[in-house]
Design a protein around this nucleic acid. Structure first.
Lengths: 167, 167
DNA sequence: TCAAATCCCATTGACCCCCATCATTTCCCA
DNA sequence: TGGGAAATGATGGGGGTCAATGGGATTTGA
């Protein structure tokens, strides 16, 4: 269950786009056969995630002060504007016009993996931003402090192939 | 689970290259039969790692503030630009054109072990760099402070073959 | 009744499986 | 210890399969 890589797919004239096979595979344990999308609040992109990740966001919001402005805003931005998009028989979704417009998507969509989540972009907009990211990372000399292996969730670690843990 | 040595293999006209047996052996406990590759920040090379190492990166990013700029950049640079490459029946991967170009790879690929990770180079580019690196190390009189054996993870130490610790 | 969504099927081209060959290394035995 | 046989890893290539795509037909629902 990891979203990685950049996958560019076509948006057809009916507003459909194939979800990359790799992403669908990362989601095949989910109850809901589809994805969630909502507008990013800092980029001209769409945030994508699984049903269970959406649950996690809702749970996190629960922990913020129920009446704080911040919780309000986040609830509106994320939960209020999210779209639940089921696959068709070929693993495609229909991108709502509202989201196409927001992300300035034209005839191509870039699915960009970010681990537990992913983003959808107009590839022409994403590419230069990604290059800038790389430059900043390099200049910053950023190094990532890796978590100890032992703290990883079960199933993220190597070992005897987990024979479908019957959870 | 250690990548060591330099192994030079051929890139065939279909864009395939054999992953060295030693490297595959180091990965045989992984769920995913293949490797991950992404562009190095600082070198004209490709960074390679296992699925569980990529999980580790994702988990570590998860810990940074979900909305921090630094996490964003790292996600774009590493997770967004990584390629998940499964082996074929003979233990080869298909090297994506984008990566071949980035690393200026021609008809040969050098797999260079770096412990938990490894790098892929055009051998002609790597060789002089390796020589320079060796010279610097010698001049500097660099010494490596070794971790006490006792702090190593289970399975990295000699001893009775750990009969699959039933954790 | 019309528009939009879903289903279904056809096409295509990249990728993956399979097998054949070649080069090394390992093993065995004289 | 030398040489030959067998095993294993690396390489080359053909062809089938499946993911991505396009578009028509049918259903749903406003």
């Amino acid at each position: 269950m990891l979203f990685t890589g950049t996958h560019i797919h076509k948006l057809d004239r009916k507003g459909r786009v194939s979800v990359p096979k790799r992403f669908r595979a990362a989601l095949d344990q989910e109850q809901f056969a589809g994805i969630y999308l909502y507008q990013s609040h800092k980029e001209s992109a769409l945030e994508g995630c699984s049903h269970s990740h959406m649950e996690r966001i809702a749970a996190s919001l629960d922990e913020l002060d129920m009446f704080s402005d911040e919780a309000d805003d986040l609830a509106d931005t994320i939960l209020g504007s999210s779209h639940m998009l089921p696959y068709d028989g070929e693993g495609r979704i229909i991108l709502p016009a509202e989201l196409i417009e927001f992300a300035h998507i034209e005839d191509q969509v870039a699915f960009v993996g970010r681990g537990r989540t992913f983003r959808l972009w107009n590839p022409d907009i994403f590419k230069p931003l990604q290059d800038a990211s790389r430059t900043r990372t390099l200049n910053r000399g950023a190094t990532l402090k890796l978590k100890p292996m032992a703290e990883l969730p079960q199933g993220a670690r190597p070992g005897a192939p987990t024979e479908e843990d019957a959870s």
